[in-house]
Design a protein around this nucleic acid. Structure first.
Length: 424
RNA sequence: GUGGCCAUCGUUCAAUGGUUAGGACCGCGGUUUGUGGAGCCGCAGAUGAGGGUUCAAUUCCCUCUGGCCACCCCA
């Protein structure tokens, strides 16, 4: 053993997970392309201050989970690895003057993110998100479009029973009154609340709704629901979304416990969950409307909405359900040879096969031909091409256990191609 | 960041305060020398790291590292 191992929370993806992960990422880009969302690739690091502003300096994500980079030389600004993608998205929107494009600006990315968190299954220090944002539209249409896009992505991967757990967190007009109402509801049992919950009661009462403490959970059941206390504008927005999702055919579950801690979040908040395995790994993804963020980062007031779906969790869910796509096996053709001197010729032949669109690899060993055949079988190859001492080639069909006569290169390669492609 | 469980070949299991830590799978080689996954034979490969207790530790204790679970939070 080498003595080195991957650092905590940072893992290697081996097959078949590596292929599955890549597949889920490819499908994410494809889903974005198909919906007319522009691809954007963002840097892995940004100014720390961007995250402190966008995510909130007191949030866990910034206060204890940020991977801060050691400053070097005369760097003017402190940098950090990105813990989420939205901040960079909005930064890019502002930096590149996208407000002069038709609104909303539709952007999508697949981002590798970093959080200095305590790892668990489905939670790693480096993870990947499919991130979609529609910036510049305040109507319920952009909510519907974005929510449906995420749900369709998950459904198309095979997670056909995704549920959208939906809530509204109101706006600056209606939320303060509701928070006060909520505070009053919990104040009556304050002495029985746990210490964390009591501090939440003072600092962020909405969080009481998703507390895990039994006392708070019990009391939350009878708590007022924000969706019953929205202002007229928020209420009609929320109603339009609920109705629209029904039309679109998305399974919706009302989820009054979905809350967001920061002021710039407004109205729609949702999570993508799978029934049956809710809990431990949390949601597959989540999204929300953040009408206050662009302005917070220095732009003019601009409404926006987006979601992030955790690719790692998606792959985990697919794996647990046996829905991972069969990953590509070995090459269709293995080029073997009788004599060690033929190794270069074997490789040249494999190259030619690939150029002809047939996956192939050469057996580069000096093993006996029997061992080479055995290796080809184990690799799942369809056929073997044997390089004869005279340089001619013999095609052997491994499925039929039949073998042709030695022939010239072009003819054998063409035959191999027919064999492989004919099989489909 | 808090609490808890865990750690033996690449994988999966076994064993013990005391000779060379055992099996299976995988890998490699052989099976008489140019044709297939079996069988048979053989080879390689581990006590995560560092301390401590002890005549003796893989086994008991501590620290570290890593994994998992719950919390926190989130994807």
């Amino acid at each position: 053993m080498s003595g080195f191992q991957s650092p905590r929370g940072l893992r290697d993806l081996l097959e078949p997970l590596a292929s599955a992960h890549g597949w889920a990422v490819d499908r994410a880009w494809a889903a974005a392309d198909a919906a007319g969302y522009a691809r954007i690739e963002l840097p892995f690091a940004e100014e720390s201050a961007l995250f402190e502003r966008a995510v909130g300096g007191t949030s866990d994500i910034v206060s204890k989970e940020l991977f801060r980079l050691e400053p070097r030389g005369d760097d003017a600004v402190a940098l950090a690895l990105r813990p989420e993608a939205t901040a960079g998205m909005v930064r890019a929107y502002l930096q590149h003057g996208m407000r002069s494009q038709p609104q909303p600006v539709r952007l999508a990315t697949v981002a590798h993110l970093f959080r200095y968190d305590r790892p668990q299954k489905g939670r790693y220090r480096q993870f990947t998100q499919f991130d979609v944002e529609a910036i510049g539209d305040s109507g319920p249409g952009s909510d519907l479009e974005v929510i449906a896009l995420g749900a369709a992505y998950l459904r198309d991967l095979g997670l056909t029973d995704v549920e959208v757990h939906l809530n509204s967190v109101g706006c600056a007009t209606c939320r303060p009154a509701f928070v006060a109402l909520l505070q009053a509801h919990f104040a009556s049992i304050a002495p029985q609340l746990s210490e964390v919950d009591r501090s939440r009661l003072a600092a962020n009462p909405l969080r009481l709704l998703d507390s895990k403490e039994p006392v708070a959970v019990a009391h939350a059941a009878t708590a007022p629901r924000i969706t019953d206390h929205l202002c007229a504008a928020c209420a009609s927005h929320h109603a339009a979304i609920t109705k629209g999702l029904a039309t679109i055919g998305v399974t919706v579950v009302a989820a009054p416990s979905i809350v967001r801690g920061l002021d710039y979040y407004t109205r729609t908040a949702w999570e993508y969950l799978l029934p049956g395995e809710q809990g431990q790994q949390g949601a597959l993804g989540g999204g929300g409307r953040y009408d206050g963020l662009v302005e917070l980062l220095g732009g003019t007031a601009t409404p926006a909405i987006g979601f992030a779906i955790g690719i790692d969790r998606v792959v985990l869910a697919l794996e647990e359900r046996g829905l991972l796509p069969e990953h590509a096996k070995g090459p269709a053709i293995v080029v073997a040879g009788i004599e060690p001197e033929s190794i270069a010729l074997r490789i040249a032949t494999a190259l030619e096969l690939r150029a002809a669109g047939v996956s192939a690899r050469a057996d580069i060993s000096s093993r006996k031909i029997g061992k080479q055949l055995e290796g080809a079988v184990r690799d799942g190859a369809r056929a073997v091409i044997i390089v004869e001492p005279d340089g001619r080639l013999t095609l052997r069909d491994l499925t039929e256990a039949s073998q042709g006569e030695p022939a010239e290169r072009g003819a054998v390669i063409a035959a191999a191609r027919r064999l492989v492609q004919g099989k489909g």
